[in-house]
Design a protein around this nucleic acid. Structure first.
Length: 623
DNA sequence: CTAGGGTTAG
C-alpha cells in the first residue's frame, strides 16, 4: 500500500499535481487497486472544481480497460471538457463498441463541446459504414482539421477498411508535409487489400521522399511480398530488419512470407530464432507446414503448442483442420473438430465446417459432405461449395457437381470459374444443349474470364507470362523448351487432360491451348533460367488446373527439380493489370486472350515433389 | 489529462 503511505505523507500538500503524479505511478506500475484508492481520496478530500484530476482518473481507468468504472466516473462529473469526452470516445472505439462511441460524439456536440483532432482521430475507427464515414469526413473538412496528420492517417485507414482505397489515396495525396505514419497507412492499405504491387511502389516513393522505414512499414512491405510470392525481394527486406529483429509482429510477417513462398527452411529458422512467439506465430507456422504439404509436421507442432505454447485460437484450429483435410486424415480431423469446443472452448465456425467438408470430399465421402453442409447451420459459403466441387470433379460425380456449381453461381454470380466448369461438366456428359445454355448466360451477364497469368522471380526481375500473350522477349526459347519437355514426360505417363479446357474447340486445339497455360510457360522459363540447385517458385493468379498440376509433378521428377507453384485462395485477388515494370523490372504486359479455365480446387497447389513413380496420371491428378 | 500505422484463416 505504497500509495496510501505516500498519500498520508503528502496529505498536507495534496495538490492536483502530486495527485496526478500519483496516478501516473499507478498506471506505470499497473496497480489498479491503488489507483482506486487515490480516486476515493480525491473525491473525499478535494473540494471545488476537479476537472483536470477527473480526466486523469478517467484516462487511468481507460488504460486499465475498466470501461464501467470510467463510465461511472464520467457520469458523476459535474464538469466535462473535450478531453473527458474524447477519452470516453477513444475507450469505446478501441473496444469496438462503435455505436456508443458515435453516440458520445453526438451527445458531446449537443452539450456544446467542440470536437478536436484528438476526438476525430479516435472516433473515425468507430465507423462501420461508408455513410457515417462520409459525414465525419465532411465535418472534419468543415472545421479545418483535415490537415492534421493524425486525422489523415485515421481517415486513410478507415477508408481502406471500408474498401474505399481510392478515397484513401485521395486523402493521402492531399498531404503537403510528409509524415511517416501517414505513409505507413497508405502502404498498409494497399498491402492489406491485395494490391501488393502498388504498396511496393509507394514504399519506393516513400524512400525517395527521404523517410526511413520503421517496423510498421517493413511489416506491410513483407506482407506485399507475401501476396505476390516475391521471396527474393522478401529476403532483401529480411536483410534490412536487423534493427527491429526483436519486433514480434515483424517477425510474424517474415515467418508468413517464407511459409507462403514455400521456403520452409527459412520459415523454420525464423520460427526457431524468434525471441518471442505468440499465438499468431504458432498458427502461421502450423498452417504454413500444412499448406506446403507437410501435414504431419503441422500436427506435431500443434501437439507441441498444446504443451508448451500459447492457447490456440479460432484461426489456429482452422490451420489444424486444414492440415487434416489436406492429407486426408479423416480420423484426426474428426478428433480435432470435436475436441476444439471441449478442450479450448472454441465453437466451430464456417471455416472449420469448410475444412471438414473439404476433408470428406477429398476422401470421397461426397454424400456425407453434403449432409454435413446441410447440418452446419450457418450455411455454407462459396469457398466451401467450391472445395466440394473440386471433390466432385475428382471423384467423377457429375450430378452432384451440377448441383454444387449452381449453388456457387447463386452465391457468386460474377465469378467466371464455375460457369466454365459447369459448361465443361455438361459437355463431358454429352449434355451439349445445357453446355451451350451456360455459355449463353455467361455472355448475357457479361461474366468475364480472367486470363491466366503466372510469374517467377529470376535474378532481380519478375517475369510474367499471360495466357495467349507472346510478347516475352524469350518466348521462342520458352516454347522450344516446352516442346522438348512434353515428349519426355509423356514417356513416364503424361497425357494432356483436356477436361481442363473449353469444349468448343477441336481436340488438337484443346491440346494446344493446354500446352500454353501460363504456369507451363513459367516452368519452362524457370528451368532454362535458374541454376539447377534453385527451386522453381511460381505464383499464379488463378487456380492451377489438374493438367498443369500433373505436368508440374512429372517435370519435377524428370528434371529432378523442386517446383513450388502457389495459386491464389480467396484472399489474393490479384488484378491482371497489377504490374508496374518500372518497379519490378517486369518483363511482359498486356494480355488479350481470355480463353482459360482453371478450377481444380481439391488439388494440392504447392510443392510438386517427385513422388510419383509407377503411378498413373489419373491418380496424380486426384492426389 | 485525450489521437494515427504493421502479423495468422477453409
Amino acid at each position: 500500500m505504497e500509495a496510501m503511505n505516500s498519500l498520508q505523507k503528502h496529505q498536507i500538500q495534496s495538490d492536483p499535481i502530486s495527485y496526478s503524479e500519483l496516478i501516473k505511478c499507478c498506471i506505470a506500475r499497473g496497480t489498479i487497486e491503488e489507483g482506486k484508492l487515490v480516486h476515493r481520496h480525491i473525491w473525499s478530500n478535494v473540494d471545488g472544481p476537479k476537472l483536470f484530476l477527473n480526466n486523469v482518473l478517467l484516462s487511468m481507468y481507460v488504460k486499465f480497460n475498466l470501461l464501467d468504472e470510467a463510465r461511472n466516473l464520467f457520469d458523476k462529473m459535474v464538469e466535462r471538457n473535450v478531453v473527458s469526452w474524447t477519452t470516453m470516445i477513444a475507450a469505446y472505439s478501441n473496444n469496438k463498441i462503435n455505436h456508443d462511441a458515435l453516440n458520445f460524439l453526438i451527445l458531446m456536440c449537443r452539450e456544446g463541446v467542440r470536437p478536436n483532432m484528438f476526438t476525430f482521430s479516435s472516433v473515425l475507427r468507430a465507423c462501420d459504414g461508408l455513410s457515417t464515414l462520409w459525414q465525419l469526413h465532411c465535418c472534419i473538412i468543415k472545421v479545418g482539421l483535415d490537415s492534421d496528420v493524425f486525422v489523415r492517417s485515421a481517415l486513410i485507414d478507415i477508408y481502406s477498411k471500408c474498401g474505399e482505397l481510392h478515397s484513401g489515396l485521395c486523402v493521402f495525396e492531399e498531404m503537403i508535409t510528409g509524415d511517416l505514419v501517414v505513409w505507413n497507412s497508405i502502404i498498409g492499405a494497399f498491402a492489406q487489400n491485395g494490391n501488393g504491387d502498388e504498396a511496393l511502389n509507394l514504399f519506393k516513393s516513400m524512400k525517395r521522399a527521404g523517410f526511413p522505414a520503421n517496423q510498421a512499414t517493413l511489416t506491410s512491405v513483407l506482407s506485399a511480398c507475401t501476396g505476390l510470392a516475391l521471396v527474393e525481394l522478401g529476403r532483401q527486406v529480411h536483410a534490412h530488419i536487423v534493427k527491429f529483429k526483436r519486433d514480434l509482429i515483424l517477425n510474424n510477417a517474415l515467418l508468413d512470407m517464407y511459409c507462403k513462398c514455400g521456403s520452409l527452411e527459412d520459415a523454420n529458422s525464423t520460427f526457431n530464432r524468434m525471441p518471442e512467439r505468440d499465438v499468431i506465430s504458432w498458427s502461421t507456422m502450423i498452417s504454413g507446414l500444412a499448406q506446403n504439404g507437410r501435414s504431419g509436421e503441422a500436427l506435431d507442432l500443434f501437439e507441441l503448442m498444446k504443451v508448451s505454447g500459447p492457447k490456440p485460437n479460432y484461426i489456429t484450429m482452422v490451420g489444424v483442420l486444414f492440415a487434416c483435410s489436406h492429407a486426408g486424415l479423416e480420423e484426426d480431423g474428426w478428433h480435432y473438430f470435436r475436441s476444439m469446443n471441449i478442450t479450448f472452448g472454441i465453437n466451430p465456425g464456417r471455416e472449420h465446417y469448410g475444412c471438414m467438408v473439404d476433408l470428406l470430399g477429398r476422401v470421397g465421402k461426397l454424400d456425407e459432405a453434403i449432409k454435413f453442409i446441410h447440418e452446419m447451420g450457418c450455411g455454407a459459403d462459396a469457398v466451401t461449395w467450391k472445395s466440394l466441387l473440386g471433390a466432385c470433379r475428382i471423384h467423377r460425380n457429375t450430378s452432384l457437381a451440377i448441383y454444387v456449381a449452381k449453388k456457387i453461381l447463386e452465391l457468386e454470380p460474377h465469378d467466371g470459374g464455375p460457369y466454365i466448369l459447369l459448361s465443361n461438366i455438361y459437355a463431358n456428359s454429352q449434355m451439349w444443349e445445357d453446355a451451350a445454355k451456360v455459355r449463353r448466360i455467361m455472355r448475357d451477364k457479361g461474366v468475364q474470364k480472367e486470363p491466366g497469368c503466372s510469374w517467377i522471380e529470376v535474378g532481380k526481375q519478375v517475369h510474367a507470362f499471360v495466357y495467349g500473350d507472346k510478347s516475352h522477349p524469350l518466348m521462342d526459347k520458352v516454347i522450344l523448351e516446352l516442346k522438348q519437355l512434353i515428349p519426355k514426360i509423356m514417356e513416364v505417363g503424361y497425357f494432356p487432360d483436356t477436361n481442363f479446357v473449353m469444349h468448343d474447340l477441336e481436340v488438337e486445339q484443346q491440346e494446344d491451348s493446354l500446352r500454353f497455360h501460363s504456369e507451363k510457360l513459367a516452368i519452362a522459363f524457370g528451368l532454362r533460367s535458374l541454376p539447377k540447385e534453385k527451386s522453381l517458385r511460381i505464383m499464379k493468379n488463378l487456380r492451377i488446373c489438374g493438367d498443369c498440376h500433373a505436368f508440374a509433378k512429372l517435370v519435377s521428377m524428370i528434371e529432378n527439380r523442386r517446383i513450388v507453384i502457389r495459386d491464389p485462395k480467396t484472399k489474393y485477388d490479384i488484378q491482371t493489370h497489377w504490374f508496374h515494370p518500372q518497379l519490378l523490372n517486369l518483363v511482359i504486359l498486356p494480355s488479350y486472350a481470355a480463353l482459360y479455365c482453371s478450377f481444380g480446387h481439391c488439388l494440392e497447389h504447392t510443392n510438386a515433389q517427385p513422388v510419383l513413380k509407377n503411378r498413373t496420371v489419373e491418380s496424380v491428378v486426384g492426389y
